[in-house]
Design a protein around this nucleic acid. Structure first.
Lengths: 207, 207
DNA sequence: TCAAATCTGTAGCGGTCGTTATGAAAATGA
DNA sequence: TCATTTTCATAACGACCGCTACAGATTTGA
């Protein structure tokens, strides 16, 4: 195996083309990006696109998958790598401020924006599911923080996770509306002010 | 004047049709709603639509205008009617939790969602401008609160306004993703926890 | 040297988009 | 009664949508 394949070789680099497709979808969304725009950006003809990636929807799904392991991988890393739940969330939000305003690529989060107002319900639902999974990941990390007594017993992990998710999504939207990195960082800082107070002590004075 | 007009009378109620158009745009966005969907929902033929509303874009602009004075009027009311800045923002967010999940109409905020991934830049920009104006309105109300000493001198009104806006937008997104009214209220409550502490006293003890 | 296999460019498929021409229908004014 | 005015329903316009048939180009294996 791994011998040279038989026919005429592909004249473009598949990964590079996929990256170009990601930029296009990221910038203009799934339905806002036509196949002719894709072929123009990717520098290939339509038949080559269909041969290499299936159809438009398969290409988008592959783009989303790659996004999740590259530009979109920050949150998962923050949640697993940081020693405390608070540190994880703070890093998640501050890295988002950075990532969302990176001039090297479209602003905001592809998973949040690329399938809104989408006439193809399956595509819209796929990204919705992914957003739901992210919320669950945050919530799980918070529960972990409760288990280690980092967070107060009474903490509503689901609600706090939703709050973090809402701030994250709001930051993404604002980055698309032109907010700067510093402005997003200020949002992140304010959000952290809502973090549950670690009870003054474990005892029960102060009635 | 006000005499009967000359030709064949219109066979539909303009306001009712406009309301139907609003629902459609609200649900599926500007480009996600085709003219044929509009005519179906509004119960009129295409020529009637064009005679009564101009073209699709004019219809959308009129929809946005009406939305701003009806379903979208809550925030402005909260900001002007409440006696304190804190009360205004709290009401703004809690009313949003209610409004965004009202089963009587599409979820979330039309101004936030209806023109994302829009191939017509002017339409996208128009709603972007409207969001910017909302941010400014919040910021103005916060500055007013600073002028009356309700808010600490050092408060960053612009940053706090952006934070409130981000939470608002995040709540809108989450309502579209299926979050319940109670879940959104929890987000609002957590956001209010980030409110600047009113300094313990105006004096300078506790160095 | 040639058949088989695979990719590429052109050109076009049926379908939907936003929009409008056309003529019948329904009102008023004379 | 009949011309005038406005709206309505049908049907179609050109442009673009996602997608593909086709034929030529370019490779490998025999």
């Amino acid at each position: 195996m791994a011998t040279k394949q038989r026919g005429r070789p592909r004249s473009f680099d598949r990964e590079t083309a996929l990256e170009k497709a990601m930029r296009a979808f990221w910038e203009n969304g799934y339905e806002g990006t036509s196949v002719s725009e894709l072929t123009r950006e990717m520098g290939i003809g339509a038949p080559s696109l269909y041969a290499a990636f299936g159809d438009k929807r398969s290409l988008f799904e592959e783009v989303v998958r790659v996004y999740g392991t590259t530009h979109g991988a920050g949150p998962a890393r923050a949640l697993t790598e940081e020693p405390t739940a608070r540190g994880a969330v703070e890093r998640l939000l501050r890295e988002a401020a950075d990532e969302f305003t990176d001039p090297g690529h479209p602003h905001g989060c592809l998973v949040i924006h690329a399938a809104t107002n989408c006439t193809t319900p399956e595509v819209e639902q796929a990204l919705r599911d992914q957003r739901g999974a992210s919320l669950t990941a945050i919530e799980d990390r918070l529960r972990q923080g409760m288990a280690t007594q980092e967070l107060p017993e009474g903490t509503d992990a689901a609600a706090l996770a939703r709050f973090v998710g809402a701030v994250f999504q709001g930051m993404s939207q604002q980055s698309r509306d032109g907010a700067s990195r510093g402005e997003l960082e200020a949002i992140a800082d304010l959000a952290m002010a809502a973090w549950p107070a670690s009870e003054p002590a474990a005892s029960g004075h102060r009635a």
